[in-house]
Amino acid sequence: MKVLVTVKEVAQVEDEFEIADREIAAQSLDYDLNEWDDYAIEEGVGMVEDGVADEVVSVTVGPERSEETIRMALAKGVDRAIRVWDDSLEAAELLDPSAKAKILEAVVEDEAPDLVLTGVQADDDAFGATGVTLAERIGFQWAAVVNDLDLDADADVAHVHRELEGGVDEVTDVELPAVLTIQTGINEPRYASLRGIRQAQRKELDVRGLDDLGLDGSIADGPLTLTEMYEPETESDATIWEGDAGETAGNLAEYLRDRGVIDA
């Protein structure tokens, strides 16, 4: 049993930021491993530790900067990692789930995993679509928003819970091979230990271009173009209490007393 975990380095915007030319200036962005992928990594690494899987490999489609993130996956126990990039992708925002899935499909063909774990969504562009798109392309079964997973490798089936709205789980059996999109909270992601970080330096990080995967740059010419980016006009008509902590707390306390929710 081999597990492939897709991971994305996501950008988080600082409190103060400016938009220029449909982009947020780099100095206002912090990069991190996508929260959902952290849980997917833990799930995959746990399967190897429990002897359910033999190998867990992670893949990212991203520029050189994202090696920091892929190293994090290695430090947390992933056996090896693949990073795919091409300069032609730089220009494209790479929003199109189909384009991403085509690239990941080529990696799946090389690696032949039995199980692919993705995050439910990427924290930055939040398409929430890459995993299921990939499943359709590679002809795997799938389940979206999985918050409980029990793999029966002998029977080639994954027993999963899909977290629906309103605190209801759908309990489903999914035939393998499958793509599962992993929801936060499914496990407790580990921190990378110092030892893990040292070991990660020696692990294989395979960098591949599109042509290595038999793809060409036209993949970047997807059908989606980001034409505008702006700060939404605030719909807020909130009364903001001004002043230092003591004053604002005083305002709030007064409001709560007037409102009658507190008698103290």
Partner: peptide, 12 residues
Amino acid sequence: EMYGSKVETTIE
């Protein structure tokens, strides 16, 4: 929206 609802984008 993107970036946790901090920005809006239009996509053609």
